[in-house]
Design a protein around this nucleic acid. Sequence first.
RNA 1: GGCGCGGUAGCUCAGCUGGUCAGAGCGUAUGAUUCAUAAUCAUAAGGUCGGGAGUUCAAGCCUCCCCCGCGCUACCA
Length: 719
Amino acid sequence: MPASVKKRYLVTAALPYANGPLHIGHLAGAYLPADIYTRYQRLMGREILFVCGSDEHGAAITMRARKEGVSPREIVDKYHVLIRDTFQKLGIAFDIYHRTSEPLHHQTSQDIFRKLLEKGHFEERETEQYYDEIAGQFLADRYILGTCPMCGNPDAYGDQCEKCGASLSPDQLLQPRSALSGAMPIKRLTTHWYFKLNEHEAWLREWINTGQLDGKQLHDPATWKAHVVGQCNSWLDQGLQPRAMTRDLDWGVDVPPEIPHAEGKKLYVWLDAPIGYISATKQWATEHYDNWERFWKSDETALIHFIGKDNIVFHCLIFPAILRAHGEFILPINVPANQFLNLEGAKLSTSRNWAVWAHEYLEDLPGREDELRYNLIKNMPEQRDSEFTWKGLQETTNTELVANLGGFIQRVFVLLHKNYGGLVPQANWEQIFRSGWDAEQYITIDRELFALAKKLEAMGAEVERFQFRDALRTLMEISSAGNALLQFNEPWKATPERVEEVRAVLFTAIQYAVALSVAMRPFLPFAAARLRAQLNLLPFEDGGELVALINDLLEGNPVLWPNHPVGLPEHLFSRLTDEVVEKQIQKLHTAQPPTPAEAPPSSDSAYPPLKKTIPYEVFEQLDLRVATVVDAQKVEKADKLLRLTVDLGFETRTIVAGIAQHYTPEQVVGRQVLVVANLAPRKMRGIESQGMILMAEDAQGHLCFVRPDEGWPHGFSVR
RNA sequence: GGCGCGGUAGCUCAGCUGGUCAGAGCGUAUGAUUCAUAAUCAUAAGGUCGGGAGUUCAAGCCUCCCCCGCGCUACCA
């Protein structure tokens, strides 16, 4: 069943994580498409609810709070406000921007947890987990620091190394330490609830690929993006595993306290975050004396999740599985995830501060929200990663917004004032003139307006297919056709014998301007409102203006009647100067990594901190030896591993080293190296590694060998 | 290493189930025009659709191999 036949829509945009500001990648990824879609549907007179909110739980926030010496509450309050205001200033028009720290959300999440437990969708598992005896608590993955086994970064987190991007598990960290106390964590038993995701694999596969569930056609898989379906199948093919839905944390939604072993446990942030969509809906319903269930529990609702590609698995597999396991909720009819936006040729990076922060843009280029929106839509990463450049922003602003669109509006208003004192002229509908769509064609007003209506319909169809770039282009074709209409008919040459013709042309042109004012709104809400005022029309109410307009045009009715007085000509957009653009490019290239107070947590500092002092006896236990690499081979099916054969003089050993991305086998054969010779052997990719090669690492994570002077004898110890 | 998505004109990108699919916008060139923020309109430029092989009457669009980018995943003492 296509979305267009549903009675109402529920649109969600990924909940921003409240420990950092928004950047243009977030906007292009989820919020702009969601906003365009929502605004469009409102203009089409459809019932649509657009919910979002701050995601305020999770270990990253508590980590950050600890680092800055403030409470998690202070962190989330700060970013909740910043993000909310940024959205508002950019015209992202949520019906509600909620937050997951609200009691309503906690309650909602707990209710769902209870229901899942009650229905047997969890299994309780006792596992060993790191525990900090000094702090007296279990350590979330994020709370365990250690040396990254991939790149040697000494400050890798238990779930991820931010330096090399590797995803890790705490057990992989070398020299694990607690982020709370610095103590060496110990293993201790803890209980968690695992959602049996594996039991949902079969129906998820069918639902994703065919749109069918329980014999019902819930969506048309052809309307889903290829990369979304592909990503899901990739996961499904690897087999879904039960996932822990609780954590040992002190910030988040409590596991319902009446449940045995619940003490000290919180819901996993990825369980509670999407539930935030539901609690946001509830909050909205409460405020509007409405019923939230008609949005979440009715087949008449089309649920659409707008997200970036990093969220596909949660929104297409895990959350749907939870919704269905619960049993009362509908599933999304589409998850039009976007890919990533790059910036000036490189990936966005918050830790390197390679980004355009939305709140800074608003400060640096005030009043240019629509220009940013336009460029981001034009370059939206709908099918693949795409790119934002400042030059590109300047170009689209100056050529498409100022020259084409702004120019057309300006011309119409000027001509209307010059010729008719600012009143819409009375026009003869029999009058023939050249079509703006084709100079060779002579046409009448109604035919021209019909063509306009068709264009608006085409634009709408593109929006409904989530093809926002195409829709934007179609919008601009209207403006171009308007320009052509003027160009072909030259209404500035109002000779006496052309009076009727000029009237008809300008009458048509102002109808185009009205149509643009409405059709622009999803993309350029601020300029649309300005144009609306300039046209001397009532402000938008988001109550079906576009559908009314299209119907009028199709029926051959004008959308602005003769003698309607329009406002004075006023430029809709202004040019973006080289100066402004250069300054931003400068800023980007000279940007310092953000200060701790401004930055998301990051391990970037010039030098890794010193580890704690150890007694000599500990050092003495190390047996370091000089050795020569006599053979090196790439390990099958491993990108980072080399299997080295090293000669210690008194014996030859096999050592597996994670250096394949830094050295080719040829480069290492014959080198003298230092070896930790008494390290417990360990199997890697099926090969037993009998020691470890010492490597030095720089700030970028590059590795080099540590070795003695040329020709030093083998096998003797290092001290 | 495995899997997924991409690799199309100088730039940014469209191309649905194979047969007007070789395209759009910007940039460039030429011409027209002056109502308009040197804005607008028209026309053109010819890119072996990453490389190679294959299937087909017909392939950017299907198959196989290789190369490159991004993402997920495995490996990492």
